[in-house]
Simulated scan of single mutants.
Amino acid sequence: MPIEKIPETFINNKKERPDLFVYDFKMTNDVVKSKVNLGMNMFSFLQVGKKQVHFAGTSVAVNKDQSLLLKKGNWLWTELLDTEAIYYCKLLFFSQTKLKEFLEKHTENNQIAKDGLPYFIIRNDAYITSYLNSLSTISEAPTVFMENLLAVKFEELMLYLLQKYGRKFEIYLRSLIVNEKSQFKKNVESQIHSNLKLGEIAFLCHMSLSSFKRHFIKEYKVSPGKWLHDKRLQKAKEILEKGDFKPSDIYLDFGYNNLSNFSIAFKNKFGISPKEV
């Protein structure tokens, strides 16, 4: 069974992943245990039908009286028709960046929560119904206004749920980013000994290039290009000092197209040529 990448499969412009994204999902056939790679945290507002999600070690089932907030990851989804001949849910995806911005703005406790359940059940009420209608309305707005309108609607929803569920909801939100900082650094630092371009590293971190750069600068206080350049040269120096390889053996591994460019960059950083090492 193929793995469906969400929200990528719903986004028309595959080059960019927006920080906020709404999609109306409809189908007319039951789907049982489809493999889904959920690349962003997601609200699933089920309106017609039944939904079950299987996680590692647990599962959750909801009907149209409930909605779900799901943590990004690899899950198995079962989506079933009910008495209607159609299954319909409205999906709202949000990035880690937007989540962090909300927590920093509206909560005081900066302590990272322990990794908890991969889902949070929301009881549908009059507010949720009204909110979903408003999302449908702004989807008709000109594209130029959509990003700002959606940002306001996302903040509105999160504030409502924070008021409704209190500390329990805040702890869950913090659990969504429990290991994200260490995982981001692990992904980045594993690419020091590689010739991957920034755009390729951003893809491996499940980010657009622009989001990756913003996140990187916030984490490392320097641009990713300069950081990788310095780290790769330092790693190259360590390899050459061991004496097992010559400069001509390794320059391609560190992203340089030719030996000359590698030698110039190396000498500019360390004051000696790689041959002298």
Rank of each mutant, 00 (worst) to 15 (best):
S67H: 07
L68H: 11
L69A: 11
L69S: 06
L69C: 12
L70G: 06
K71M: 04
K72L: 09
W75T: 15
L76T: 11
L76Q: 11
W77D: 12
W77Y: 10
W77A: 12
T78L: 01
L80I: 02
L80S: 04
L81I: 00
E84N: 03
E84A: 08
A85K: 04
I86Q: 04
Y87L: 06
Y87V: 04
Y88Q: 12
C89L: 10
C89M: 12
L91Q: 15
L91Y: 15
L91P: 12
L92I: 07
L92Y: 13
F93H: 04
F94C: 03
F94S: 00
F94Q: 02
S95I: 05
Q96S: 13
Q96Y: 14
Q96M: 10
T97Y: 10
T97A: 06
K98I: 02
K100T: 06
E101T: 11
F102S: 01
F102M: 04
L103C: 06
K105N: 11
H106W: 06
H106M: 09
T107I: 07
E108H: 14
Q111I: 08
A113N: 06
K114S: 02
D115K: 10
D115Q: 08
G116A: 09
G116F: 00
L117I: 09
P118H: 01
Y119E: 01
I121W: 00
I122N: 03
N124F: 11
D125W: 12
D125G: 03
A126V: 15
T129D: 15
T129F: 10
Y131K: 05
S134M: 06
S134P: 04
S134F: 07
L135K: 06
S136N: 14
S136I: 13
S136P: 10
T137W: 02
I138A: 06
S139F: 15
S139K: 14
S139Y: 12
E140Q: 12
E140M: 13
E140H: 13
